[in-house]
C-alpha cells in the first residue's frame, strides 16, 4: 500500500508541518509512512463485532476516577502564563495580523 504524495502533502498541511523541499526526502517520508500503514493494516482482518472501543484505561476503573466540582480553584497567574511567550504585550500573546 502506497499513500499518494498529494495525501502526504494534505496531512502535512493539516498538521501545520512544512514538508522537506527535496523530492527525494519527500519520497522517503512517503515510503516510511506507507510502510507503517501497510503494517498496521493487518488489524482490519480482526472480527471486532460487539466490541466497544477502549479509549482510555480509566474507563475500566470508573469508580476510582471521580470528577471534581466545576469551579475555579486558582488564578491570577497572568505573568506566569505569558512568561514563556516568544512575544507578548499588555499581558497578551502577540501573533502576526490575522484580520485585514
Amino acid at each position: 500500500m502506497t499513500i499518494p504524495l498529494e495525501t502526504v502533502e494534505k496531512i502535512a498541511k493539516l498538521a501545520r508541518l512544512k514538508l522537506p523541499k527535496e523530492v527525494a526526502h519527500q519520497k522517503k517520508l512517503q515510503k516510511e509512512l506507507s510502510d507503517i500503514l501497510s503494517w498496521v493494516q493487518e488489524l482490519s482482518t480482526i472480527d471486532v463485532t460487539g466490541v466497544e472501543p477502549l479509549i482510555n484505561p480509566s474507563q475500566l476503573f470508573k469508580k476510582s476516577t471521580p470528577t471534581r466540582e466545576d469551579k475555579v480553584t486558582d488564578g491570577g497567574f497572568v505573568r506566569d502564563v505569558v512568561s514563556n511567550a516568544p512575544e507578548e504585550a499588555h499581558d497578551m500573546f502577540v501573533v502576526p495580523k490575522v484580520v485585514e
Binding site: 488489524l43 480482526i46 466497544e52 472501543p53 477502549l54 479509549i55
Partner: peptide
Amino acid sequence: QALKVRRM
C-alpha cells in the same frame, strides 16, 4: 478499529 482490538 485499533481501539476495539485494544479492548480485546
